[in-house]
C-alpha cells in the first residue's frame, strides 16, 4: 500500500517531467502557421516537413555531425586524462592534493561571457579555431574536473588490497591499471562518460565562439531559426527533438552499465 502511493507519486512526477518534451514533439509535427493559429493537445494535421528540411539541408544536418564529433572527442579525452588522476586522488596522499582538487573544481566557476574573447585569441594563436578539437579541448575545462571527482568516488569504493595483491603478483602499474582496475570500475566509467557527454552536448557559448563553419555545432545552427519574421517554431522544435536522440541512444546502450554503476554507487 505504502509502495503503491510512492509509485503513483513517482509516475505523476515523470509525467510532469515529460510534458515540455511532449509539447516540443507535437510542435515539431505541425506547421508554423498551425502552431500559431490554434491551441491543440496533439497535432491534428501531421506533417514531417520540419524533419525533412533538417535531414536534407546540409547546413542543418552537418551541425549534428559536428556536435557528435567534438562531444565524442571530449568524452574520450576527459576519461583518459581523468582516470589516472582520479586513481592518484583516491589512493595517494601527496603534497597539495586537497588544494589541487579544489583548484580543478574552480574551473567550473568562472562566468563565461568575458572569458570568450581571450579564448578566441588563445585558440587563434595556436591555430585551432573552427576545428572540432578546439571545442573538445575547451570543454575539458569543466568536464575533466567533474570526471576526476566522480571517478574518484567509484575508485575509493574498491579496496586497496586488490592493488596490493596485484603488485605482489608482479603486475606493472600500467598493466594492472588497464587490465584489472578499469574493468572493476567499468560501470563508474559508464556513468562518468554519460555526464561528460551531457555537459559537452548542451554547452553553447564555447562551442559557438570557437567555430565558424567547418565545426559549427547544432546548438549554434539553431539560432538560424530566428529570422526576420520571428521564430520558426516548428523547425526549432524538430531540431530540438533531434538533439535528444543521440543522448537517448547513448543512455539506451549503457542503461545496464548505468543501473549497475548507480548500484555500485559511491559517486
Amino acid at each position: 500500500m505504502k509502495n503503491r502511493k510512492r509509485y503513483i507519486a513517482l509516475a505523476v512526477y515523470f509525467v510532469l517531467l515529460m510534458l515540455p518534451i511532449y509539447w516540443m514533439l507535437t510542435m515539431s509535427l505541425r506547421t508554423n502557421a498551425d502552431i500559431l493559429s490554434s491551441f491543440s493537445y496533439y497535432p491534428k494535421n501531421l506533417t514531417f516537413t520540419n524533419y525533412i528540411k533538417i535531414f536534407t539541408d546540409r547546413a542543418w544536418y552537418s551541425g549534428y555531425i559536428n556536435s557528435l564529433i567534438y562531444v565524442t572527442m571530449n568524452t574520450v579525452i576527459s576519461l583518459s586524462f581523468a582516470l589516472p588522476a582520479a586513481y592518484a586522488f583516491s589512493r595517494f596522499k601527496f603534497l597539495g592534493d586537497g588544494q589541487m582538487f579544489f583548484w580543478l573544481l574552480t574551473n567550473r566557476m568562472a562566468p563565461a561571457a568575458v572569458f570568450l574573447l581571450p579564448y578566441f585569441q588563445l585558440y587563434s594563436t595556436v591555430g585551432l579555431i573552427d576545428t572540432h578539437i578546439a571545442v573538445a579541448l575547451a570543454h575539458c575545462l569543466f568536464n575533466v574536473p567533474l570526471a576526476v571527482w566522480i571517478l574518484e568516488g567509484f575508485m575509493s569504493g574498491i579496496p586497496r588490497e586488490i592493488d596490493e595483491t596485484a603488485f605482489i603478483d608482479g603486475y606493472s602499474f600500467p598493466r594492472f591499471f588497464i587490465t584489472l582496475f578499469i574493468p572493476l570500475i567499468r560501470a563508474g566509467v559508464g556513468v562518468t562518460a554519460f555526464f561528460c557527454f551531457m555537459f559537452s552536448w548542451v554547452e553553447l557559448l564555447f562551442a559557438r565562439t570557437l567555430t565558424v563553419t567547418n565545426a559549427k555545432p547544432i546548438v549554434a545552427t539553431m539560432t538560424r531559426t530566428i529570422s526576420a519574421t520571428g521564430l520558426d517554431w516548428g523547425l526549432m522544435a524538430a531540431a530540438g527533438t533531434l538533439t535528444i536522440v543521440p543522448g537517448a541512444l547513448v543512455i539506451w546502450f549503457v542503461r545496464n552499465h548505468m543501473a549497475k554503476g548507480f548500484a555500485l554507487g559511491r559517486v
Binding site: 548542451v202 538533439t243 537517448a248
Partner: peptide
Amino acid sequence: ITLALPLLIPWNV
C-alpha cells in the same frame, strides 16, 4: 532514462 532526458536538451533550446 526518463530522468536523463531533460538534461540532454541544449540550454538555449
